[in-house]
């Protein structure tokens, strides 16, 4: 349980980090479209805690949570989002293309399904070199609508490539998260796991708000992948945070309040139902509280620590210079 308390602390850090991102955007500290991971924190942590840092990872436009859970430097990520010189990729990529090449997150395509064949290609390289690595490939349910997804499922199944396809379906109502078929308004299949079945790729559904369930499933699938069984497909189901309903993230209902763990009904109406049924922080906090591992005072203290850490991250990132104009033309090509 003390390990789960640490998980809660990391989830809280991700939440406060992204609340800070929204606030920075709203006061004009950076421009451009961006996406937050609020409500999906348990999925990234559960999956990546099951994967060693020697495995590759490909993420998407919604990458903040994946990169933080992977262990990327938060100040580097915040600086990247702000276009600063000390960003993970020098301020070149922004939120869309934040990546961590040193941490085997080689590049981030922000195009839906753009990363899926790339992950398969890296898995082909692994297979050819004969190491026991694998590739984690994150994408959203929208990627299952793209042609590149189907071509890559076929190829990776034929070639038995060591890839874990982690599909995050972040639009599932709470009652459907853990089981059963859930139809999508934009897909004819009854369930996303049905889509990979004809390719012989095992498909698994997991409640993406449940850290332990995700971690256990990914641990098991990673072992199968490393044995040479070929790709695995996971649909991790979460419920969309109301702040991500619109085209732009919004701090709907105000910042998260740790007291909602004990009293979700106290959350503002716009987020009340989601908080009670679907917020992974609330759900885990309630479990820890029920087990006597967490009390309001303890969580409040934890939150103050986390807020302090995030404030430092923001301060340090904002203090950096913008990626300089003089470097604009650099790195179109690599030197021979």
């Amino acid at each position: 349980m003390s390990a789960l308390r640490e998980v809660l602390r990391r989830m809280l850090f991700m939440r406060r980090f992204e609340e800070a991102v929204i606030a920075l955007f709203e006061r004009g500290d950076f421009e451009g479209h961006y996406h937050v991971y609020i409500g999906q924190e348990a999925t990234a942590l559960g999956a990546l805690d099951a994967i060693p840092p020697t495995d590759y990872m490909y993420t998407t436009h919604r990458n903040h949570g994946h990169l933080l859970a992977r262990g990327a430097d938060p100040t580097g990520l915040m600086a990247e989002i702000l276009g600063k010189v000390g960003g993970l990729v020098g301020g070149r990529g922004g939120s869309y293309h934040a990546a961590w090449p040193e941490g085997l997150v080689p590049v981030t395509s922000a195009l839906v399904a753009g990363n899926i064949p790339q992950a398969a290609g890296t898995a082909l390289a692994i297979k050819r070199k004969g190491t026991d690595q694998l590739v984690v490939c994150w994408f959203g349910d929208g990627a299952v609508e793209e042609g590149a997804f189907y071509e890559t499922m076929n190829l990776s199944a034929m070639w038995k490539l060591p890839v874990l396809y982690l599909c995050e379906n972040n639009s599932v109502p709470a009652p459907y998260r853990a089981m059963g078929q859930y139809p999508s308004s934009t897909h004819a299949a009854r369930s996303l796991t049905d889509v990979v079945a004809p390719f012989g790729i095992p498909g698994h559904v997991v409640d993406g708000t449940d850290y332990e369930a995700v971690r256990q499933l990914v641990t098991e699938l990673a072992a199968r992948c490393r044995q040479g069984d070929g790709p695995q497909f996971v649909e991790a189901r979460t419920s969309r945070w109301p702040g991500s309903y619109g085209l732009w993230p919004a701090q709907t209902g105000g910042p998260f309040d740790v007291r909602w763990v004990w009293e979700p009904a106290g959350a503002p109406e716009e987020v009340r139902e989601w908080t009670a049924s679907s917020d992974p922080i609330v759900l885990l906090g309630q479990r820890l509280a029920a087990a006597g591992q967490l009390d309001p005072e303890g969580l409040s203290q934890l939150d103050q620590e986390v807020k302090g850490e995030v404030a430092t991250v923001v301060e340090e990132a904002l203090a950096q210079e913008d990626a300089p104009a003089a470097q604009t033309l650099a790195h179109v090509f690599a030197d021979r």
Binding site: V107, P117, Q118, A120, G121, L124, A125, T152, N154, L155
Partner: peptide, 23 residues
Amino acid sequence: IYPAPISEIALCGIGVGAAIAGL
């Protein structure tokens, strides 16, 4: 040589990912 299906978008992307990882 890998014989391959007629799947240009996946094959071009597989080339990208394989090159990134050292092939």
